[in-house]
Design a protein around this nucleic acid. Structure first.
Lengths: 220, 220
DNA sequence: CTTGTATTTAAACGATCGTTTGAACTTAAT
DNA sequence: ATTAAGTTCAAACGATCGTTTAAATACAAG
C-alpha cells in the first residue's frame, strides 16, 4: 500500500481555502498515486482534514468527487489545446509539428504542472469502469479534432492510420507523465527536455506514410 | 464496478485442468479488466470455481497469485525478446528496425495472443504499489539490454535520449494493447496492422538525432 | 435574540475486503 | 483396512469499504 496515510506529512491541504478545495486536492493526490480503487474515502477525508461525510455532502459520492477532480484540471488543458490548434494556420505536412505542439504543450506547461500531468496520465490508464464514460466525455471531442487536423495534413494517409498514430502519441505521453519506476528507463530529465523529445519523436512518426516495410509474416 | 461477477458467463475456466491453472486464468482475466485492486479474492474464486481458501493454499496470498500470473505470461515473452535481439547481427542505424521488431513482435504474436498482450499493458500502468517491485524484477533487465543495443546503433545520440525514446515506444505499446475505449481512437485494426504501424512509428522516432527543432520557449 | 439555512460532526449502516482455521474429503501406498 | 500426505471445504476472523443518518455547530438575516 501507499503506507500509513496517517503518517504522511499531510501536505498543505489542511490550512488552505474552503472544504471543497481541500477535498479536491486530497482526492487528486491520492488518485494520482493509487488510482480510483486506491483512493479511499477515509484516506481523502484524513488528508483533507474533514469529516468522512463531507465528501458525500459536497460531491454526492466518491465518483462525483473524482469527476470534479478531473474536470478541474483537464478541461483547462483541453481548452488550451483547442485554442492552440485553432491558431495553426495551415494543414500541410509541415504543420504537423505545430499541431502536435498544440496537443502536448498544455500538458507539460500549465499553472499546475506536475499534478495536472500525472492526473492526465493516470486517468487514461485507469482500470476502474467508472472512469470510462468520464474519459470519453472529456477527451473524445478534442482528440477527434486533432485527428481531423492531422489527417488534413496528410491526405495520402488513411484516416484510421492517422488516428492510431495519434494513439501512439497519447500512449507515449501517458508513460512519460506517469514517470514509471526510475529503474526501467533511468532518471526523468527536465520537463522541457522530455517535452521536446516527445514532440520530436511524435513528429517523426507522423511524417512517414503507410508501411514501407515488408509485412512481417515471421514465425513466433 | 465490473457488474455482478455472479452474473458473468463464467467462461471456460471451470472445466479446465487443475485448480492452480483455473486460479491463474481467473486472476489473469480479472486483473486485465480491473487491475490489482479490482481483482477480488472472491471474484477470482467464483470465476475459477474454487473455494476462497484455495488461493491462499496454492499461492500464499493474492499478491503471490498475481506474481505467478505475471511470470507465467511475461517471462516467455521476454525470453523470446532476448533470443530475437541476440539474432540481430549488427549495430548500425539500419538495425534499429530489427531491434524494435525483436522487442515488439513477441508481445503481439505468441501462443496466448490477446491475454498476454493486455496483461503486459495493464501491469505497466498499474497504480498499486505491490506491482512496482515485480515490474522492476521482470522488465528491468530486458529493457536495459534493448536500450544498450539501440544506443549502439546510434553512437551520436545521448544514452539518456535513447532510453527515453524507448519509453515512448513502451508507452505507445501499452495504450495499443490496452485498447482504450473505441470512442477515442476508433475501432482497433487487425493485430498485424497494429503491429506494423507501431513498428514503423517507433523506427521513425529513433532515426532522427537530438532535437533539430528550436527549443520551444512559448508562453503557456 | 430569534429564525433559518448551510455546514460539519460523531456514529453507525450493510457490504465486501484478504486471510485464516480446522474439519472433511480425496488419493495412493502400505 | 490403515496410514499419511495432499487438497478442498464451510465458516468465520478483524479490518476497511462507500454511504447514510440525525444531531450539533456556524453564521447571516430579520
Amino acid at each position: 500500500m501507499s503506507g500509513n496515510s496517517a503518517r504522511k506529512p499531510r501536505e498543505v491541504s489542511c490550512e488552505t481555502k474552503d472544504t471543497q478545495a481541500r477535498l479536491l486536492n486530497a482526492a487528486e493526490a491520492l488518485f494520482i498515486d493509487a488510482g480510483y480503487a486506491g483512493m479511499s474515502a477515509r484516506g481523502i477525508a484524513d488528508r483533507a482534514c474533514v469529516n468522512i461525510a463531507a465528501m458525500g455532502y459536497h460531491f454526492g459520492s466518491k465518483q462525483g468527487l473524482l469527476e470534479a477532480v478531473l474536470i478541474r484540471r483537464i478541461a483547462p488543458i483541453n481548452t488550451s489545446r483547442r485554442l492552440r490548434l485553432a491558431a495553426v494556420p495551415e494543414r500541410r505536412a509541415e504543420s504537423i509539428r505545430a499541431i502536435l505542439h498544440a496537443f502536448l504543450w498544455p500538458v507539460f506547461f500549465n499553472e499546475h504542472e506536475a499534478p495536472a500531468r500525472r492526473l492526465m496520465g493516470r486517468v487514461m490508464t485507469e482500470p476502474a469502469d467508472v472512469v470510462e464514460p468520464l474519459l470519453n466525455f472529456v477527451f473524445s471531442d478534442v482528440i477527434e479534432q486533432f485527428v481531423v487536423a492531422a489527417a488534413a495534413c496528410f491526405p495520402e494517409q488513411d484516416r484510421a492510420l492517422i488516428a492510431q498514430k495519434f494513439s501512439f502519441v497519447v500512449g507515449a505521453l501517458n508513460l512519460t507523465v506517469l514517470r514509471p519506476s526510475e529503474r526501467l528507463f533511468g532518471p526523468a530529465p527536465a520537463t522541457e527536455v522530455s517535452f521536446d523529445r516527445l514532440l520530436n519523436f511524435s513528429v517523426d512518426g507522423f511524417q512517414q506514410g503507410p508501411s514501407v516495410s515488408d509485412v512481417n509474416k515471421d514465425v513466433a
